[in-house]
Every structure is written in C-alpha cells, then in structure tokens.
C-alpha cells in the first residue's frame, strides 16, 4: 500500500522559478523516507504539495489512494501532518496548550477530546507541564517540539518534516531522533527533507535525491554509497563512508555506511587480530 504517490508533478512559483519538474515518486506506508538534495533542489516545494498547501500545475498527488485537490481539502491535512522548518512560523499561539489545541479544534473535536489530545501529544514530545508557557519564552528546541506536538495532536498517519534537525543542539537532535523512532514504531509513515546525509543513512529505509526540481535518484540508503552520484547531486559522502574510502580491503562484502556497521566491522577485525 502506498501512503503517498506523486505522479508527474510540475510546479513553478508565481515569479516563474521552476521548482519541480515532472516529479514522480511513491512512498510506501510505514516507511522512513529521507528527501535529500542541495539548496534550491525543490524539497520544501515538494513537501508543500503533499498536503495540498500548493496545488500542482501539472500532474497529481495521491494520499492513501485519494487525489489531493488543493486548498479545500481538509481531510488531507488530517492525514498528512506538516512540521515546518522554523517553529516560529508554526507555533503562533499565546500558550503552548493553545497552540497544540489549534489543530484538533479546527477538526471540530469536542473540548474533552481536544484536552486529551493536547496532554497526550505534549507527553510524547517530553513537554509535560509546559501547557501554560508562552512559546516566545521557550528555547528553540522546545518550540520545535511544540510544533511537532501540534501536528501529532491531529493524529496524522503520515508525518512530513522539513529540515527537522536544523539549528538543534546535539541533545535536541537525539531527542528528536527518539521521537521519530517512536512514531516509526507506531507504523506512521515519515518523510524528512534534509541535507544531512549522515542522518539519512542512519535513520531512513528509503532515500529520494532531488536535484534541480527533478528526482535524481531514489532507492534504499545504499544509494548513498555512490560517491560519483553524491558529487553530482552536490551532497557530501556519509562520514563513515568517507572514513572507509580507500580501505576497501578491510571491508567484508561491502564497506559500512552507518556508525553501527562500522563498529561491527571493527569489532570483527579486532577479534581476528586477537586470534592471530
């Protein structure tokens, strides 16, 4: 079952900048997809199409098999939750609780249900007790988590995040990773637009590389082994792959990509040395 299908979508901004050209891709339900690409590749523009904030000028987007028509579609906003890059764009209310309640209220839920969802989503992002805090007095990472809670409160099956790791400190990143892993374990479909190749190899099971508004390559994270391809897409090699480049003799069948694989390889080399 495909959570999202994009078929031949083209989009140019009103000033004439072509941002997407004939983009086609399929996102399986429950997958963790990283959308990679250099600045201006069209990542954000693509994401905006996925819940009808932008309507394709050519082609069509399907969510859970239903065509996305555009601005009047309220169902798609409840199915696909969008977390924007800058939490200040998203978290606009006077208190945290009010902001998280915004989506559920717009869905027309009963006040009791709204309160229940606000509590549950704040707990999931680790912000219990922040209900009455004004967002402009929170740290960047906390505001980011408020933004995520506000989307989770709408109960979407698909979550789309634009550059979620940007500007977060290492602890903030770990925390966000944990939230993403938990959502993934609940078999939500997750899409993350990022420049961060290391994050993509560690986290995703599906990679889409955009370049100049086109799908340049898509597949499993192993496509990120291809140094030539990454250079053409103006992306860096994953750190682990850079470390092992030139030491192919040490690798077993293929060189490691993630920190975990690298440690496994090193451990096995170490045991071999000890045996000798």
């Amino acid at each position: 079952m495909m959570a999202i299908e994009v078929k031949g979508v083209s989009y140019a901004y009103p000033d004439g900048t072509p941002a997407l050209r004939e983009v086609s891709l399929s996102i399986p339900a429950g997958s963790r997809t990283a959308i990679l690409g250099p600045n201006g590749a069209g990542k954000s523009t693509l994401l905006l199409h996925l819940n009808g904030l932008l309507a394709p000028q050519r082609g069509q987007v399907f969510v859970a098999g239903r065509p996305v028509l555009g601005d009047e579609d309220t169902w798609v906003r409840e199915t696909v939750g969008m977390v924007f890059q800058d939490p200040d764009d998203q978290v606009f209310s006077a208190t945290v609780a009010e902001d998280v309640a915004f989506g559920p209220q717009n869905m027309g839920l009963s006040p009791e249900e709204v309160v229940r969802r606000v509590k549950a989503s704040l707990a999931r992002v680790g912000l219990r007790g922040y209900e009455e805090r004004p967002p402009h007095r929170l740290s960047y990472g906390e505001r980011k988590r408020v933004a995520i809670a506000g989307v989770l409160a709408m109960g979407p099956d698909i979550l789309v995040l634009d550059e979620p790791m940007a500007y977060l400190d290492p602890e903030g990143r770990l925390r966000l990773r944990a939230i993403l892993d938990e959502l993934s374990a609940e078999s939500k479909t997750l899409l993350v637009a990022t420049h961060d190749v290391d994050f993509a190899v560690e986290w995703s099971d599906h990679v889409v590389i955009l370049r100049g508004g086109r799908v340049f390559r898509s597949g499993g994270p192993e496509v990120l082994r291809d140094a030539e391809l990454l250079r053409e897409a103006s992306l860096t090699m994953p750190t682990v792959a850079r470390v092992f480049a030139g030491f192919e003799g040490l690798c077993r069948d293929r060189c490691p990509l993630t920190v975990g694989e690298a440690r496994e390889l090193l451990a096995s080399i170490q045991t071999e040395l000890e045996v000798e």
Partner: peptide, 18 residues
C-alpha cells in the same frame, strides 16, 4: 513571515475563531 505563518496555520486546517 506573515505568509509562512498563515501557510502553517492552513496546514492545520485553520478556520475562524482562535
């Protein structure tokens, strides 16, 4: 900024009554 905020509000099905 105003445009982006409004877009984010629409993403959460903004209607009347804040």
């Amino acid at each position: 900024r105003g445009e982006r905020v409004y877009r984010a509000m629409r993403a959460r099905n903004y209607r009347e009554g804040l």
